[in-house]
Simulated scan of single mutants.
Amino acid sequence: MKQLLFDLCRIGGVSGSEEPIAKFCAEKLSAFADTTIDKNGNVIATLGNANADKTILLDAHLDRIGFIVTSINENGFVKVASCGGIDVRVLSDAVLVSCSDEPVKGVVCCMPPHLSDGGEDKAAPIDKVWIDFGLPYEKVAEKIKIGDVLTFYGEPKELMNNRITAPALDDRCGIAALIRCAELIGKKELSYKVVILLSVQEETYGTGAKTGAYRINADEAIAVDVSFASQPDVSGQYAGVELAKGPMICISPILSKAMSDKLISVAKEKNIPFQYEPISGTTGTNADHISVTKSGVASAVVSIPQRYMHTPIEVIDISDVENTAALLAEYIIGGGAFND
């Protein structure tokens, strides 16, 4: 699992440019399921009885946050706009890498404190950020084009206590959980169809979930994503969410109460650790799109606890990924929430 997570997090796949990660994931899933990539770039893997009347959909998103190149000045410095929710506070000394066949690295320009009057102490907005690739304009223009995408550079690293840190764990850890789930149920005799949707553009417009769920037309769906774990200075309900205490089962007005209740009962029955995530409105996940597809899809959300979301140093516990996969597999083996 650790190696799978590391491999997933090393691949590009900024929103709208998910081809490399889609190809990798399709190859992984093809060992357990009939797998295709649709015209929008979604990976769709089908298990169980393909001709069954009932379909359970499992979704995780392929894309990661990043940047799109908007201009290059005469000195070779590059301007970008954000693709997804970039935290500008972490940009001042970040290393970025192009998502190209021959990746090149650049650094975000920052003012030395010796030359600052204090105005630079606040995070600069994205339209004030410049990227330095260390090359003159002519060389930069050979390697970087307007419309190219960049993302945070960072090698995944193992921390102590079964934890890892990497950029893009949102939502590559969700993908890892679904690949593991496919392995767990791949040889089971199921009387219904299970479809894994690895969807594009969640961090921008949710395009992949909208079109993929419309095509699949499932009876019930579970979106697998990340949510907030406790860290210093976090207060409120997320102060009580811990790493290594299991996946978070969401309870929300937009979700199916029957599905949330069934996930909770399965976790209790199978002794799979879990945590509650009550949300008073929409969930901020693909479930918001899937639940209103066509005439509606009963939906649930299972999230992997994560620290430092949307930064180059996101942190998870590997056991939470394994337990997410186990919970999903047991839910599916039991027939889902509507198995009568």
Results as ranks from 00 to 15, higher is better:
residue 43 V to N: 02
residue 124 A to N: 07
residue 278 P to T: 00
residue 115 L to R: 05
residue 78 V to T: 14
residue 127 D to F: 13
residue 300 A to E: 04
residue 116 S to R: 08
residue 183 E to N: 14
residue 297 V to N: 15
residue 212 G to H: 04
residue 39 K to G: 10
residue 172 R to I: 09
residue 318 I to E: 12
residue 242 E to R: 14
residue 246 G to N: 03
residue 19 E to S: 15
residue 161 N to L: 15
residue 197 L to K: 05
residue 92 S to K: 14
residue 240 G to K: 09
residue 30 S to R: 07
residue 65 I to T: 14
residue 192 Y to W: 09
residue 188 K to C: 02
residue 185 I to L: 06
residue 277 E to P: 06
residue 328 L to R: 06
residue 150 L to D: 04
residue 317 D to P: 11
residue 143 K to G: 02
residue 97 V to H: 15
residue 237 Q to N: 14
residue 73 N to R: 03
residue 105 K to W: 12
residue 39 K to E: 10
residue 334 G to V: 00
residue 81 A to T: 08
residue 322 E to M: 12
residue 167 P to N: 04
residue 178 L to N: 10
residue 318 I to W: 02
residue 140 V to L: 12
residue 91 L to I: 10
residue 167 P to Y: 10
residue 264 I to A: 07
residue 131 I to F: 05
residue 59 D to W: 12
residue 112 P to D: 03
residue 278 P to G: 05
residue 183 E to V: 01
residue 8 L to C: 11
residue 104 V to L: 03
residue 31 A to H: 13
residue 39 K to V: 07
residue 26 A to Q: 08
residue 266 V to C: 01
residue 164 I to P: 02
residue 215 R to S: 14
residue 89 R to L: 13
residue 302 V to I: 10
residue 12 G to W: 04
residue 126 I to D: 00
residue 231 Q to P: 13
residue 203 E to L: 07
residue 106 G to D: 03
residue 186 G to T: 00
residue 290 I to C: 09
residue 84 G to A: 10
residue 119 G to E: 07
residue 285 T to S: 09
residue 139 K to D: 12
residue 88 V to L: 00
residue 316 I to D: 10
residue 227 S to K: 04
residue 241 V to H: 08
residue 143 K to M: 15
residue 182 A to H: 09
residue 247 P to R: 05
residue 215 R to A: 12
residue 125 P to A: 06
residue 109 C to W: 14
residue 200 V to I: 12
residue 33 A to H: 06
residue 293 T to C: 06
residue 68 I to A: 07
residue 327 L to G: 15
residue 117 D to S: 13
residue 91 L to H: 06
residue 299 S to D: 07
residue 57 L to S: 03
residue 164 I to E: 03
residue 156 P to A: 02
residue 164 I to D: 11
residue 318 I to T: 07
residue 235 S to E: 11
residue 5 L to V: 05
residue 296 G to H: 00
residue 253 P to V: 00
residue 30 S to M: 10
residue 169 L to V: 15
residue 170 D to Q: 12
residue 337 A to F: 09
residue 83 C to W: 08
residue 222 I to W: 04
residue 330 E to R: 12
residue 232 P to T: 00
residue 299 S to R: 12
residue 178 L to V: 09
residue 269 E to Q: 12
residue 293 T to Q: 00
residue 283 T to R: 05
residue 34 D to Q: 10
residue 63 D to K: 08
residue 185 I to G: 11
residue 92 S to D: 01
residue 230 S to N: 15
residue 293 T to F: 02
residue 20 P to G: 09
residue 180 R to V: 06
residue 244 A to S: 14
residue 308 Y to Q: 14
residue 47 L to H: 04
residue 11 I to N: 01
residue 135 L to Y: 13
residue 275 Q to N: 03
residue 30 S to Q: 06
residue 26 A to Y: 00
residue 289 H to E: 06
residue 142 E to I: 09
residue 47 L to A: 09
residue 114 H to L: 04
residue 286 N to W: 08
residue 307 R to G: 10
residue 333 I to G: 06
residue 236 G to T: 03
residue 270 K to H: 13
residue 333 I to Q: 11
residue 86 I to S: 04
